Each structure stands twice: as structure tokens, then as C-alpha cells.
Computed example of a mutant assay.
Amino acid sequence: MRFSVTTWNINSVRLRIDIVAKFIKAARPDVLCLQETKCIDDAFPLKRFKRLGYEHVALNGQKGYHGVAIVSRLPFESTDIRTFCDKLDSRHVSVSFGEKAQLAKPLVLHNFYVPAGGDIPDPALNPKFEHKLQFLDEMKACEPLHPRGDDRHILVGDLNVAPHENDVWSHKQLLKVVSHTPVETEKLLAAQAHGEWFDIARERIPMSEKVYTWWSYRAADWTVGDRGRRLDHIWVSRALKDSVSDFKITRDARSWDRPSDHVPVTAVLEV
């Protein structure tokens, strides 16, 4: 069975519902994972998604900030929400698929929005950066997040870290910039290794190639200089590593009307 999943930091789902609909109509992923929805659950545009064919929704929202959502054409078996760093900000939601979705074996999907971390890469001076580092540590320590053996798990989201040299436009110039500092990249890669996760982008695209999913709003024209970062990720467990049949970054979405600063990232698996 073909299973497609897209992750997208939409930076306000209500403000950008029209470009979400545009993407859905063109790409038709089975599951869309959104981050920074920026609305309480009761304000989420459920009716619009249902008209588009996405009737199954798992929400973890809050007013004005953060927020994650999973909208799906396939029914869930169950949903779960985890909190990190003793904070109630809405940064995780997961669902499991099984018999209802006509899958022969269970599949668990995690959707994350890791804290951005502010501007100062020093936890002693910047509580936001301290929070981010603690969050990454807790991702590594949270054993239920980590697949073992034949577990079929997918982890997606805006992880707010560009871990490799060619995940940023300039490795040297961004070493002291939040999202690419050595302490962040080490912690994200440690969480990935501890969970035996495989980063689909870097499994399919050579490390020597530049790959981006985010371009700052601060640039008047994001295409000039192409100063991007790869902050949005799709990881799969070992049991799914050889099931990935396609991977795509919808780069042109950065030029759509009133765009997010992130673009959709999609993987297709044979499950």
C-alpha cells in the first residue's frame, strides 16, 4: 500500500488555509502534519479540511502560538499527546494507523514542533535556547518515541535544527547562529541515533548537496542568494528504511501568495 506523508510548518493555519488547500489539491498526501498552527483546537478549520477529503484530525493547539495538527484521509486507531520540559506549549501529537486504514501492520506517526530557541546561542543568557536544548535532550530520553525491532514508526516536523554542513547556506557563517550551532546539531543527531531513526532526506540526497526547507522572511527576495536552512525533517524507523519510494521538497511554495517561511516536505512509502 502506498502511504504518503507531508510535514509543513504553516505559520498560522487559518491565515494560510488557502495555500494549504492549493497544496492538498495538487499533491493529495494521505496525511498532512502541520506545525505552528497558532490556534486553539475549537478554531481549527475542520470544515475546510473535511471538504478537501481529510476527515480524520488530531489536534494539539493553543492560542496564538505553536500548535501541531495531523489531518488525514485515513482513519486513526489512536492518538497521543506528550509534553516536554514541564511546559504545556503544544509541540507534539502522534497517531497510530492499523486495520481501520487497511494496513497489515501498525504504523505510528509523530509530529513535532521543536522550540526555535531565540537569537542568542547561550543557555545562560537566553532561556529560550536553554528550553530548546532541554527539549532535544528529552526527545532522546523519551523511550516511547523510539522504535525498536520491527516497529514501524515515522517522525516528522519542524525540528528547528539544520544538523549537517550542507543543510545551511554557509556552514562557517552559521556555526554561531541558532539552528546550526554545534550543541544543537549534536543533540538532535544524538536523539536520532538513540532512536535508530533514518533521516530520509540524507538517505536519498548526498551529503555533498545543499538541501533547504526554510528561507527567512527578512530577505526581500528569498531566491537571491538562496540562503536557506533544512529545518523540516522526516525520519523513519529501521523497519521502514527500505520502504521509502519517493521524497520531495515543494520549494516553489515559498513563492506562493502570503507564504509560510517553510515549505512542504513529502515522503512516499510502500507499507
Rank of each mutant, 00 (worst) to 15 (best):
K140V: 06
A193S: 12
A124V: 09
P115T: 13
L107Q: 03
G117K: 10
Q102C: 12
S170L: 08
G149Q: 05
E99C: 08
H110F: 09
H180I: 09
K187Y: 15
A101Y: 14
D86P: 04
V183G: 12
F112L: 11
R152N: 06
W197D: 11
L88N: 06
R91L: 13
R152H: 09
P123G: 00
K187I: 14
D119Q: 14
V93S: 00
K100V: 14
P75E: 06
F76L: 02
A104C: 08
P127A: 00
I81W: 12
V95W: 15
P144N: 08
K87V: 14
F135P: 06
H194P: 00
L174R: 06
K176C: 13
L103R: 10
E186Y: 15
L103A: 07
E130P: 03
D122F: 02
G149T: 09
N160A: 14
P121Y: 01
R82L: 07
H153M: 07
L159C: 15
P106H: 05
V168T: 04
G67W: 04
L133A: 12
R82M: 08
D80V: 09
Q102L: 05
P144S: 08
P123V: 05
P106M: 07
E165I: 04
K100A: 14
K87P: 13
C85K: 10
A69H: 05
D122W: 00
V71C: 01
D158P: 08
K172M: 02
P163N: 04
G98T: 02
V183A: 12
L125F: 03
A191V: 13
G118S: 14
P147T: 02
L159W: 10
H146G: 07
C142L: 04
L188T: 10
D137L: 12
D167G: 08
L74F: 05
K187L: 15
R91K: 09
G195T: 04
W169I: 11
E99W: 01
L103K: 09
F112W: 00
G117Y: 01
S78A: 15
H92L: 12
H153K: 10
I81Y: 13
D150W: 00
V114F: 02
L133S: 10
K187F: 15
